[in-house]
């Protein structure tokens, strides 16, 4: 039996490496440098592979992602979507997953926010765990749910961090909920609100 790794967060999903499998249809969802995963996979796939696929790509950094976008457009995938944010892409993903046929494989690559939110959407659509692969690329920024007001703050790179909703200063716990696709944030200075610890960039 393997011993738990001290550095692992037990409530957090383990991410792997994408590896295309036999399937009736393939759905790729990626953001920013996660798009490079699709391009490098494409090099060892048959030319017509993407005829039977859909690509949903989120580009939050248009200056630096142009070569990825050019590469994706060159794959000849008839259903290529490029959107500006995860939130903007989710309705499209939801519709695609709802209409999914049996034997569809879903591949996610990118930030933890993308992986979490796309996984949540796939679970809501009733996708089997085995039909989903994940690979973590790019930003370590966390999606954080404030335990007090329940609001979600995106792209958290510091410890502690401000809640975008209620303004409390949050300690980002190493505790992750798949259902919320978020880490838990708990007020760090509740005992003494005048004690304001400095923020450190640790999740960038």
């Amino acid at each position: 039996m393997s011993q738990p790794d001290d550095s692992a967060i037990l409530s957090r999903p383990r991410y792997g490496t994408l590896s295309p499998v036999e399937a009736n249809f393939h759905v790729f969802v990626a953001d920013d440098s996660g798009g490079e995963t699709i391009l490098s996979l494409a090099q060892s796939l048959p030319d017509d592979f993407f005829n039977n696929a859909e690509i949903i790509y989120v580009n939050t950094d248009s200056e630096n992602n142009q070569s990825v976008i050019d590469g994706l457009e060159a794959l000849g995938c008839p259903r290529l979507y490029i959107g500006p944010s995860i939130a903007a892409a989710l309705p499209r993903l939801r519709t695609s997953l709802d209409r999914m046929r049996m034997g569809t494989q879903v591949y996610l690559s990118g930030s933890e926010s993308l992986l979490g939110m796309a996984t949540m959407t796939a679970m809501e659509a009733g996708l089997d765990h085995q039909a989903l692969q994940t690979e973590h690329r790019g930003s370590l920024a966390r999606r954080v749910q404030c335990v007090h007001c329940k609001g979600i703050t995106e792209n958290v790179t510091t410890q502690p961090a401000d809640c975008d909703h209620c303004g409390l200063l949050l300690f980002v716990r190493d505790h992750y909920s798949r259902r919320a696709a978020a880490f838990q944030g708990v007020n760090i200075n509740a005992e003494d609100p005048s004690d304001v610890p400095a923020k450190e960039e640790i999740y960038s």
């Binding site: 749910q145 716990r173 909920s177």
Partner: peptide
């Protein structure tokens, strides 16, 4: 928090407890 931990398995909801996992 039940609201945060709902749907988690036994190891996941105990993730923040120190020492006991080891």
């Amino acid at each position: 928090s039940l609201d945060f931990d709902i749907g988690m398995n036994f190891f996941e909801w105990h993730a923040p407890v120190p020492l006991a996992h080891e």
